[in-house]
Amino acid sequence: MTLDTVSWPASYGDEAKPRKGFFTDTSICIGCKACEVACKEWNQIPMSIKGFSGKSYDNTLALGANTWRHVAFVEQRVPAGVDDGASLVEAAARADVIDAGVHTYQEGDGLRWLMASDVCKHCTDAACLEVCPTGALFRTEFGTVVVQEDICNGCGYCIPACPFGVLEQRKDDGRVWKCTLCYDRLKEDQQPACAQACPTDSIQFGELDELRHRAEGRLKRLQDAGQAEARLYLADDDDGIHGAGAFFLLLDEPEVYGLPPDPVDTRHELGSIWSAAGAAALALGAGLIAAVFGGRR
């Protein structure tokens, strides 16, 4: 497997460190939000009180400028009378009974919870970094993606470029903010605050190739135990972003957790984007010549 990015490790030479990342194993997340709290605390992120959302236990709803870890809560109804020995997870996975929405508890029905702590993916091919016109977004020596707040000029281009909707602008200062994978702590050989706070090791921090190896073992164990719906997300080099620094083990389709099933870095089509713009510029030139010379003066 190749974990290399465009600018890491090559541009760092001897100073490159092993690529670091997160393996978030959602099958053991208990939804305690310790990661959200630890992240806010360590990174001194402003309050983001949005009130009661009515969407399960989730009141932050998405990653954003002031939410760098976000715990998703999905409630899925499992029909009563699943008594053939199937686990709740299996029962919910039977295609026709899956609903991804919020449901009130119905007498006699079973309920399964899916909980997952989401974060910036620190993509191998990071669209945000590529479109940033100022170089405020950069690749660190750990292979992670960080915004330099003294350079960000608030142009907002990275916001719609990110295929995961991670980046957001802070209204008061106009700049964008996101997870730094605790760059300051990494430089001191400390693990990120969220990973340290997670009581179940649902968030595992480490060297990316070692994490990938560990994740394959975990996937195999779950599959062998009959959890056919268990899957790894963003753990491969041949997806649309060439894999991520932060990848996940999920128990249902990615979109159920608010994650795109096939995220793509648009740089892969930059050639045809620029060709089209160039061709259109030439066509405009031709049109101008025709308009000026194609008739009376």
Partner: peptide, 20 residues
């Protein structure tokens, strides 16, 4: 919140992307 439009599954109907 329930399954979204046209049978698309989503997270409580929340957007995946951020608007510009």
């Amino acid at each position: 919140a329930i399954a979204g439009d046209g049978g698309i599954r989503s997270y409580h109907g929340q957007p995946v992307l951020k608007e510009p």
